[in-house]
Design a protein around this nucleic acid. Sequence first.
DNA 1: AATTAAATTTAGACAAATCTAAAAATTGAT
DNA 2: ATCAATTTTTAGATTTGTCTAAATTTAATT
Lengths: 217, 217
Amino acid sequence: MTRSEENYLKTIFHLGGGRDASITTNAIAEQMETKPSSVTDMARKLAEKGLLHYKKYQGVSLTDLGTKKALSIIRKHRLWEVFLVEKLDFTWDEVHEVAEQLEHIKSEKLIDKLDELLDFPKYDPHGDPIPTKDGKFMERDKKLLSEMPISASGVCVGVKDSSVPFLKFLDKNKIALGNTIKVLEKEDFDQSLRIQMEGKDFRISHQIASNLYVKTE
Amino acid sequence: MTRSEENYLKTIFHLGGGRDASITTNAIAEQMETKPSSVTDMARKLAEKGLLHYKKYQGVSLTDLGTKKALSIIRKHRLWEVFLVEKLDFTWDEVHEVAEQLEHIKSEKLIDKLDELLDFPKYDPHGDPIPTKDGKFMERDKKLLSEMPISASGVCVGVKDSSVPFLKFLDKNKIALGNTIKVLEKEDFDQSLRIQMEGKDFRISHQIASNLYVKTE
DNA sequence: AATTAAATTTAGACAAATCTAAAAATTGAT
DNA sequence: ATCAATTTTTAGATTTGTCTAAATTTAATT
Ligand SMILES: [Mn+2]
Ligand SMILES: [Mn+2]
Ligand SMILES: [Mn+2]
Ligand SMILES: [Mn+2]
């Protein structure tokens, strides 16, 4: 598989093409910052190779084989992100760009040994689950902070938006994965929250709260 | 720079194009397992970009800029090889293939941090020197085992041939970098050597001896 | 059901990197 | 100095992945 093919599979997976849902040409084009006509060409090619289901004008979805390949690339991406943070002191906003390159390195032994070096991590620096070697996916039981009821508390386990500006904002405000958060008050007017975290209590906007995942239990 | 351009620069460097010498189209084509006509095309392109000196029919050599780029790729290649051996338990015959891919990853921070993680190694697993960040090259004072006089001894510090079969042969015979070797006897008939190494003494062919580097001092 | 708008595909082009076959330049041997 | 062999370059084609513009299909609206 070429780098481009791998990127298409990964994108389609992230758009939800793993299950039934059929993903539109335009959605893929937008996500990949390319043109719909290019997507059509690639869809035909990947279908030819048995990686996609594709019927003209009907959108695409991943075959079992395609899903397997997508998960393998996502596994590599996330393991490399862990490596960069844990072993090379990258910050969580720096890792994605480099992992986009590293995910295409071809060596099964490399990724197995990397997994071992990192002590078989289950989640990447953004809280996203790392698929196992055989493509098992362990999605965590989590909810958005914005959906928590008042006085409930939980541990921050992930971000929905993992853009560089959002991650840097969280760093600046000392909001990190692993922190325990308690919802003190919800403001009706703008849906902002007053929360308690690591001793301090302060206010965060709805936009922030709706991009932070919390594990309740 | 594209991956292909980087591979051309690296190959030209390894063929000696770093200094005055002008490297022939055919030599590059053979080394890269491609056709001379492809080399001509790329030579023109790289000259256009200021990375090569190139005059039709006169061969090519690296400009200062081209040399710098080549050394940067070689630095990455060798650092990754050290990483694979030191951190991921690869054997020295397995690393080259993977490093061929990893050397093209673009991130200055990545390679600086990798260097640090590995404690700033000076040599790769095959005994080849790792260029510094600013392209300094520290070639070691070494000679071929086959050129050592009788009863001289030295430490094995590198291999001339780093093909998989040769490296595996050395492993099988417990010949490793760092071992101290003493020449006991040279056979006139076939130029084979009797050597002492790590207690044992045994015989090795001229072909082996002429592909092992030894540091005498 | 007909018409319009939007999404999708097709047709044709292009850049990068390669190839084959033919032409041109260089080398080196008489 | 000439000629033949070798090396190198050119010309034209191919593959991959992309693009634009035009045609087609589907979806939405009257
Ligand atoms: Mn990422
Ligand atoms: Mn991530
Ligand atoms: Mn190597
Ligand atoms: Mn090496």
